[in-house]
Design a protein around this nucleic acid. Structure first.
Length: 798
DNA sequence: AGCACGCCGACT
DNA sequence: GTCGGCGTGCTC
């Protein structure tokens, strides 16, 4: 008999293995590895992925597959083995690794119906619930509080529970109609149709000269009632045609042509093209200062790949997946490009995915998850802004897109380009060691100078009596640009946009009742919100501790900056970009467009404006507080600060007008600020490498983070201790185990969190040991309420 | 994760 | 004596 081994859609340790199912003879030629199927699992039906198909001589009693969910496999052999690797690397469940490769629309949606069997009579109360129908939704019975009643009926055999599985996403279709008559017959019919059927005659006349042609119903102008009548009369025929939702509808792209490369660009692209030609896997680190023309190198490398009939994947950080960026790919490669980003609806993403899967496009530009694009002949993978932390997924499977890209490139034998003006220390260190090949673009295209950078010591400002958030230096320069009609970008180096409130009299700061974090103030709704558990409450007008009315809205959010700016420069036209103003679809694009068209003088924003902005009239960039990020409990704080400041500075003076940058800080002596001002990557690298070496952090050590949580602090800490005791003897003496200590965020959702950090260089057994820990707590933990999670190569240590 | 089965307290 | 609480164990 033919047997399929299937991974079921139940993400827990106990079901994290293949289950065997009989393939019914009817599906024997249909079902293949990589397909989704519906299988019975216990009393219900669930979605599953076929891993392999086996032929067995002896028949055994297995449940049969209910039905396939796909006509062709959604995951090919390569992606299936990538899932194996992901599972092992990130210690996730196999099902999570499989799901992450597919668009959300292909997740299963489960529902239950209750059906009358007719085998036995129904009780009166249940009869009235069904009210003549022979099937109702489970939820309806639940709402009516009739579940126990229903259960009894099911036992009696008078009712049945149906479990259904559906794919979430729908293919979008359009109704098409065609006239079935010949031209001659149509003419006659139009004449002979009853005169009172005016609309029908009108509709049929539309088809004169287009008989036999499929036309979207919409274009014929007839109503659906008319269409129905004509179809019933067999004058028309209809069908549903599958179509793609078009996220770029109404946008046109002026095709562009390759630019002439500078000598430096030429030198950088040659080794890449060579590997493309040889079809050899090699990872290049393309280190190019801002404005040095990395994108053109990407574009021309891709061109070469397409010429060979191969495909290319381009990863871009979500935050810079702006039209400005994607348009360049669209302009160069037109309809060969699919774009995947979070701004698309589930359906739109599904459509883009299908275009890729059917090989209707050759290039994918997208955020992290686009690294799983189901191409089968990849010739190049590019990761732009390689250092961005958003390439690491912070939920299971906790993968890094860079690692996945390199794996896939190994499979297909193709190069990977990691591009950045400020490479991550990990990547640059690998380039130094020769693991990656370093390519350098040291100068801006056309020799445009890097902008001049002023560092302003805000302590000094304060000492001299300037208590505003703008230093005199920055303020004068903003005023100057206003007068000259040039543009300014003001950057608030702050995670998010949020502020908190504090009582000025007693210093009370409202904290989330469930989590150990202060709450975020949302001005538009005058609410306090917790970003970790979602708890919300009205913002108090009186201090709950001391009843003082002096409540200060603390933390300089962009809104506050905007207000103060307007006070000082009422004539300035300001565009504010933060989570509040870019929440709606397309808002991001709209605001940037406004700025590009010079409808504003100042663009004020957070992280999201640090990248990709490339407007000729930006001649001033101001960083309001460069060091807010520096004091986070994160060994990467300096690196992040350096990267951000360098990126932001790169926004100024990219065209003919020279640029200036003002960086305001309370710690002007810090090397990450000093060296970012000098745009001196190598020096920063050297300096930071020393710090990492001393601290025993990456790239000198790898990290693994174990987090233990429990409702009782004691339990979390004692179990974390036990774990450490158990792990330590399994590791080599070279490994360092830090902690356990309480997590920086010591409580989330009423669960206390303890963590321990393992630093290691080579621990072949570590994966197995950690898996054991997870398995142990999956069994035990369920009853004692303990949760344990493991993050290999973590980016968030909180 | 669901869901069934099973074993103990408060109700008609 | 039954209803329903949630501990335990299983799902090809």
């Amino acid at each position: 008999m033919k047997i399929a081994s299937v991974i079921v859609d139940v993400a827990v340790m106990q079901t994290d293995r293949p289950f065997d199912y009989e393939i019914p003879p009817a599906w024997e030629d249909v079902i293949q590895p990589g397909m989704r199927v519906i299988v019975p699992f216990g009393p219900r039906h669930v979605q599953g992925f076929v891993l392999e198909i086996k032929e067995e001589q002896e028949s055994r009693k297995l449940k049969p597959i209910v039905e396939p969910m796909d006509i062709v496999p959604v995951l090919n052999k390569e992606l299936l083995s990538l899932a194996d690797w992901l599972t092992a690397e990130s210690l996730c469940f196999k099902i999570s690794a499989l799901q992450v490769m597919l668009p959300a629309a292909m997740k299963a949606k489960y529902s239950k119906q209750i059906r009358v069997t007719g085998f036995a009579p129904l009780s009166l109360s249940v009869q009235s619930l069904f009210n003549g129908r022979d099937e109702i939704a489970w939820e309806e019975a639940a709402e009516a509080g009739a579940l126990s009643e229903i259960r009894k009926e099911v036992k009696k055999g008078s009712l049945d529970v149906l479990y259904s599985v559906k794919s979430k996403g729908r293919k979008k279709t359009v109704r098409m109609v065609k006239c079935r008559l010949s031209e001659k017959l149509l003419n006659e019919t139009v004449q002979s149709m009853p005169k009172n059927a005016l609309k029908q005659v009108e509709a049929m006349q539309f088809f004169l000269g287009r008989t036999g042609e499929w036309i979207p119903l919409k274009e014929t102008g007839m109503s659906s009632a008319v269409a129905k009548a004509l179809i019933d009369k067999e004058l028309l025929e209809e069908k549903q045609e599958e179509m793609y939702r078009d996220p770029l509808a109404g946008r046109t792209f002026t095709p562009d042509t390759p630019l002439v490369l500078t000598d430096m660009q030429q030198a950088a692209i040659e080794p890449i093209l060579e590997k493309v030609k040889e079809e050899k896997a090699e990872t290049f680190l393309l280190h190019g200062v801002t404005g040095s023309g990395k994108t053109e190198i990407y574009l021309q490398s891709i061109s070469e790949v397409l010429k060979k009939g191969q495909e290319a994947i381009v990863l871009v950080p979500e935050i810079s997946l702006t039209p400005q960026m994607t348009d360049r790919f669209k302009q160069r490669f037109g309809n060969d490009v699919a774009v995947l980003h979070s701004g698309l609806s589930t359906g739109e993403k599904y459509d883009e995915w299908r275009k890729i899967s059917r090989k209707e496009v050759k290039v994918v530009v997208g955020a992290r998850s686009a690294v799983f694009a189901p191409f089968e002949n990849i010739g190049l993978i590019i990761i732009d802004e390689e250092h961005e932390t958003s390439y690491k997924q912070e939920e299971n499977p906790r993968y890094h897109a860079r690692d996945v890209a390199i794996w896939r490139a190994g499979f297909y034998g193709c190069p990977v380009i990691l591009g950045s003006a400020t490479p991550s220390l990990e990547s640059f260190a690998r380039a130094q060691k020769g693991v990656y090949t370093l390519l350098t673009l040291a100068e801006r295209v056309n020799d445009r100078p890097l902008p001049a950078v002023d560092i302003v010591d805000m302590r000094e400002e304060l000492r001299e009596g300037n208590r505003s958030m703008f230093s005199r230096n920055l303020f004068d320069k903003i005023k100057d640009r206003l007068e000259k009609g040039e543009q300014t970008v003001l950057f608030l180096n702050k995670r998010g946009y949020s502020s908190f409130i504090m009582c000025r009299d007693c210093g009370y700061v409202p904290e989330c009742p469930n989590c150990d974090v202060s709450m975020t103030y949302h001005r538009h709704r005058h609410q306090l919100k917790c970003h970790y558990c979602g708890h919300e409450e009205p913002s108090p007008n009186v201090c709950p501790e001391c009843t003082s009315e002096h409540i200060r809205h603390f933390g300089t959010g962009t809104q506050k900056v905007e207000e103060e700016l307007l006070k000082l420069l009422p004539e300035a036209r300001i565009i504010r970009m933060d989570v509040d103003t870019t929440g709606t679809k397309g808002a991001h694009e709209r605001l940037l467009k406004k700025f590009a068209q010079k409808e504003a003088d100042i663009l004020l924003g957070t992280q999201m404006i640090a990248k990709g902005l490339d407007f000729p009239d930006i001649t001033l960039v101001g960083v309001l507080s460069a060091d807010t990020m520096l004091h986070l409990p994160d060994f990467r704080a300096s690196e992040k600060t350096f990267q951000l400041l360098t990126q932001v500075s790169g926004r100024a003076g990219r065209h003919t007008l020279p640029g200036e940058v003002v960086i305001q800080t309370y710690t002007p002596e810090h090397y990450s600020i000093q060296l970012a001002a000098d745009q001196h990557y190598e020096s920063f690298y050297e300096q930071e490498m020393q710090m990492r070496k001393m601290g025993g952090y990456p790239p000198f050590y790898y990290l693994a983070l174990i987090t233990v949580s429990h409702e009782e602090a004691i339990m979390a800490s004692s179990e974390a201790n036990k774990i450490v005791m158990n792990i330590k003897p399994e590791l080599s003496p070279a490994a360092v185990v830090l902690g356990p200590v309480a997590s920086p965020i010591s409580r989330i959702n009423n669960r206390y969190r303890w963590q321990c950090l393992i630093k290691y260089k080579r621990e072949p057994k570590l994966g197995a040991v950690l898996k054991q820990v997870l398995e142990h707590y999956a069994k035990q933990g369920k009853s004692n309420g303990l949760m344990v999670s493991v993050d290999i190569h973590p980016y968030v240590l909180m």
